Computed example of a mutant assay.
Amino acid sequence: MYLEIITPDENVFEGEVESAMFPGSDGSFQVLNDHAPLVSSVGKGDVKILRLHDKKTEEIHFSIDGGVVEVLNNKILVLAESIGE
């Protein structure tokens, strides 16, 4: 599935992923391939991405300061307020 994370200032991440975990407003949630359509707010916290890289699973983390996530047809779009350091 394809994931894109953008802020008002930059395109932070773009690429194929195996799964993504988000800090939802009411608790964290995970998105896997063929997930049902979804629109949700995300709170401040850690975004955890798993992707296959050179036949190995790679784990990537971003600290997000809130925003919105949309899941539709194996594409995840995250509109983040900002990405923390």
Rank of each mutant, 00 (worst) to 15 (best):
M1W: 07
Y2A: 09
Y2T: 06
Y2V: 03
Y2M: 08
L3G: 05
E4I: 06
E4A: 06
I5A: 08
I6R: 01
I6V: 11
T7L: 00
T7G: 00
P8D: 01
P8I: 04
E10V: 04
E10Q: 06
E10G: 03
V12N: 00
F13V: 06
F13S: 08
E14W: 07
E14D: 12
E16T: 13
E16R: 13
E16D: 09
V17F: 05
V17L: 11
V17K: 10
E18V: 14
E18Q: 15
E18R: 15
S19E: 04
A20W: 00
A20Y: 01
M21C: 15
F22Q: 03
F22K: 04
G24R: 05
G24D: 03
G24C: 09
S25K: 14
S25L: 14
D26C: 06
Q30Y: 02
V31C: 04
V31E: 01
V31T: 10
L32C: 10
L32Q: 06
L32S: 09
N33F: 09
D34W: 00
H35P: 08
H35A: 07
A36K: 13
A36D: 13
A36N: 12
L38H: 00
S40C: 02
S40E: 00
S41M: 12
S41N: 12
S41I: 05
S41L: 12
V42Y: 00
V42W: 00
G43C: 02
G43F: 01
K44L: 10
K44V: 15
K44A: 13
G45S: 09
D46C: 14
D46N: 14
V47L: 14
V47I: 15
V47N: 03
I49L: 02
I49C: 01
I49V: 04
I49Q: 02
I49P: 01
L50C: 13
L50R: 14
R51W: 04
R51K: 15
R51T: 13
H53S: 15
H53G: 04
D54I: 10
K56H: 07
T57G: 09
I60P: 12
I60M: 12
H61V: 15
F62G: 11
F62H: 11
I64D: 06
D65N: 15
D65Y: 14
D65E: 14
G67Y: 08
G67W: 10
V69W: 00
V69T: 00
V69F: 00
E70A: 07
V71A: 04
N73A: 14
N73S: 15
N73T: 11
N74F: 04
K75T: 11
K75I: 09
K75Y: 11
K75L: 04
L77A: 11
L77K: 09
V78F: 02
V78K: 02
L79G: 01
A80V: 05
E81W: 04
I83M: 08
E85W: 06
E85S: 14
